[in-house]
Design a protein around this nucleic acid. Structure first.
Lengths: 91, 91, 91, 91
DNA sequence: ACTCCAATACTTTAGC
DNA sequence: GCTAAAGTATTGGAGT
């Protein structure tokens, strides 16, 4: 069998993998699209707020800070878990 | 009126702005949450694919290239429209 | 003048740039070396501590958390600056 | 002895461990600081080079490649030593 | 020792 | 055009 023919008539396993890959890629692209839409929404909200006289720079900082606080709280919990675990305790 | 009293009994306009700002910030945070969920979903899809033997690095490149292609195509269409428009034609 | 000769006897400006680039690259490499040495030192300190019965996982978490706290404090200050700036005040 | 008193008057061994841990953590943090300073230095060198018209992206590639070369050379030397050692020779 | 996961550093893109 | 945020890739650490 020639190389060209081989390329035309792939192994079932390879074909399956190809289809599977295609499906996965398309699924990712759909998710990326949804994400892009959300990013656009967020941008729009900021723009509207700016139009109403709010300072977007400060707003972004506030959002960032509140997010950081949440992360910090989670870290503290993780720390507690770690300590309790080290002491042989579970909660 | 003392400064303290002023702080306790704000101007209606200020109060309104404050509530409005709060609403906007919370709306942004909700959108950010949804976005974070999507990012997590995408990461999970990649992780699954990796578990099935696919190379995620290459997959990411594929996704990026296809995105570029779409952008190019859109640009070309926009260019075509521009030219057709300049010639008084529509399609 | 042949191309080969030109390559051997470059323009002063080009030569200068080349020497300068060499110096910069070497400087970066020295800094990178120092950095690698520090990373090795840190790893060694953790290893020693482990040998004395300390839990490195917890230690790393502690270091991370303290770093996060510092970052948080800086963010708060930045926030304050931003607010004061927005109110036309400086400190 | 109540639990509270126990907490106030710890075992010598525990106290010692605590002080020791504190010392280790602080030592690590100092090393991390130095490391962060070096990272900042490196970034600054790149920034300066960029200001003088050098392409930082290419510079980074150069640094990376040279690092790889050094690693390769070390590997080859190690291999040579191994072979020579197997033949009962030293160099 | 080797694989998996986490973190850091680099790159690119978006906002101002 | 520059600064800052997001995404991506590489490195280092933990667990088996």
């Amino acid at each position: 069998m020639s190389a060209t023919a081989a390329a035309q008539k792939e192994q079932p396993a390879t074909r399956f993998a190809k289809d599977q890959l295609k499906a996965i890629i398309e699924r990712i692209e759909r998710l990326e699209e949804e994400k892009a839409a959300l990013v656009a929404d967020i941008r729009e909200v900021y723009a509207e707020a700016k139009g109403q006289g709010f300072d977007t720079k400060i707003m972004r900082q506030v959002v960032r800070l509140r997010k950081l606080d949440r992360a910090d709280r989670q870290e503290q919990e993780a720390m507690l878990d770690l300590y309790l675990g080290a002491l042989g305790m579970r909660h």
